[in-house]
Amino acid sequence: MGDEENLPNTVAMLGQAYSLLGFKIVDGVVGAGYPQKPKHSAVFAQIRPEGSRVTDLARGANMTPQAMGELVDELVELGYVVRTRDPDDGRAKLVTLTARGQDSVRAGMATIQGIEDQLDALLGPEGRQALRRLLATILTAVPD
Rank of each mutant, 00 (worst) to 15 (best):
V142H: 02
D103A: 04
Q118P: 00
Q129V: 01
G15K: 11
Q102P: 00
G69I: 10
G127A: 04
A58L: 09
G60N: 11
V26R: 03
R128L: 01
Q102K: 02
N6V: 08
G124K: 05
M68V: 13
L21K: 07
G124S: 04
A45E: 12
L139W: 07
L94A: 02
Q118E: 11
G127I: 03
V82I: 11
Q66D: 15
T10V: 10
D144F: 08
A17K: 02
M63S: 13
V43H: 08
R48Y: 05
V95W: 00
G101T: 01
V82Q: 07
E116P: 00
G31T: 06
L7I: 04
M68C: 14
T140L: 05
L78D: 07
E5S: 10
P87L: 12
G2Y: 06
K93I: 01
V105S: 01
R91G: 14
I112S: 06
L71M: 13
A42T: 11
Q36G: 13
A42E: 15
D120E: 06
E126N: 05
T137G: 00
M1H: 04
G114R: 06
D27M: 07
A92K: 12
G90D: 13
D3V: 09
S104C: 09
D86F: 13
A42W: 04
V72D: 12
L123V: 01
A17L: 08
E74I: 05
T55W: 05
G69Y: 13
S19L: 15
L71S: 06
M1S: 07
V81C: 09
G79F: 05
G60M: 07
Q46N: 13
V105E: 02
A42Q: 15
E70R: 15
I25S: 00
N6T: 10
S19G: 11
P143K: 03
A45R: 12
S41C: 15
E4M: 11
D86T: 12
Y80A: 05
A32P: 09
L20P: 00
M109R: 14
S19N: 12
G108D: 07
S19P: 00
R133W: 00
Y80D: 04
M63I: 15
D117E: 11
A130H: 05
M1C: 04
L75Q: 10
S52L: 02
T64C: 11
A110D: 13
M109A: 09
Q36E: 13
Y18R: 14
T111A: 12
Y18P: 01
A110Y: 05
L94E: 01
